[in-house]
Design a protein around this nucleic acid. Structure first.
Lengths: 189, 189
DNA sequence: GTGGTGATGTCAGTCTGTGACATCACCACC
DNA sequence: GGTGGTGATGTCACAGACTGACATCACCAC
């Protein structure tokens, strides 16, 4: 793997996951990751802003996807349904790589610093959805609350999905079920 | 401020907030903070696990407070109401220091790393509430979703509270209002 | 084949965080 | 009033995360 092999970013990400699964994320140094990818530490930081980011920078822009999905829906659609639909399309993309998600999640769950990064990524997606809702005239705090509620449903649904050893249902099903439960819960049931 | 002045922790926290307001959190080094508190960098790390923690380690154990509040409520109380009541008591404590909260929040909002830490602290409080709900027989994913929904309401309510220049309402009012909005939102309104 | 361009390498440096050990103030006990 | 224990603090050395400045390399257009 020489200096000019293609897809340096992808190699770095793969190396980071491999090494973290083997020895843990903390025990893996950036120099280790770069070396396995055939690169140097300095080059790692040209591709990723910091060590944790290598596990979170996916190929698709979920912010844009969510924003466009919400913007595209009929004006008559309620905010919560718009959010549910947007997250459903994201779920559709994610579940194409269930095993990859499981490996990645195993690394993240084992490290508090990575959990922090995961939470701010989710919060950032929530902020994008809240913006999209405001753009269609939903006022605050309703816009923020709807987005946050959606993120909560997605988070819990995703967790159930990666931990479900039976593979009985897909991510969309789990998230959709969480939306239903959330509606029941806030109704006092 | 010599070596054995009392309340080293409090001095470090005050120094951190002061310096962060003056020059920004990033620009402030741990050595700077320790020096203003009349201590050394090494001693800072004996009181706080890392640089960010100095802004988040409060004197009261909110986890225990939330757990006890939820456990103390009547069995007939619905999960969402139990969570709302628990967060109401936390709000009661917080609003005794509105100006302090505003200064602290100004520092946090200006720094993404601090926002990360804030989110994991909130998530941790949510996990404590979910545990308390499970202890009273609420099953998953309802327990997790209820706790997450409560955190969402608290988060948005808190934000409104610190940014409300009129001081017209207290934190409890804002959070309670967010719970009501949340119920309306998930009902499709 | 020449020059420009973007990706990579090299090097030096700051800051965060930690282990090991020394020092200091205070307190209990004789 | 000395003496030893205890906990908080200081000192030192060091690994690892990041960054700025500059050099080098592969490739492509002309």
């Amino acid at each position: 793997m020489g200096r000019w092999e293609p897809d340096a970013r992808g190699r770095l990400m793969a190396a980071a996951i491999e090494l973290s699964l083997e020895h843990g994320f903390e025990q893996t140094t950036v120099a280790d990751i770069a070396a396995r990818a055939g690169l140097t530490e300095r080059t790692f930081y040209r591709h990723y802003a910091d060590k944790r980011e290598v596990l979170f920078a996916g190929p698709i822009d979920l912010h844009a996807l969510l924003a466009e999905s919400i913007a595209a829906q009929a004006d008559s659609t309620s905010p919560i349904d718009a959010v549910a639909t947007a997250l459903d399309s994201v779920s559709g993309l994610m579940q194409q790589n269930r095993e990859g998600s499981r490996l990645r999640q195993r690394v993240i769950d084992a490290n508090p610093m990575l959990r922090e990064r995961e939470l701010i990524k989710l919060a950032s997606l929530g902020a994008a959805m809240a913006d999209a809702l405001r753009a269609r005239g939903v006022t605050d705090p309703t816009a923020s609350l709807t987005a946050e509620a959606g993120i909560a449903a997605f988070k819990v649904g995703f967790e159930t999905w990666v931990n479900d050893a039976t593979d009985a249902h897909d991510l969309q099903h789990h998230v959709s079920e969480c939306f239903d439960r959330l509606k029941a819960v806030t109704a006092g049931r």
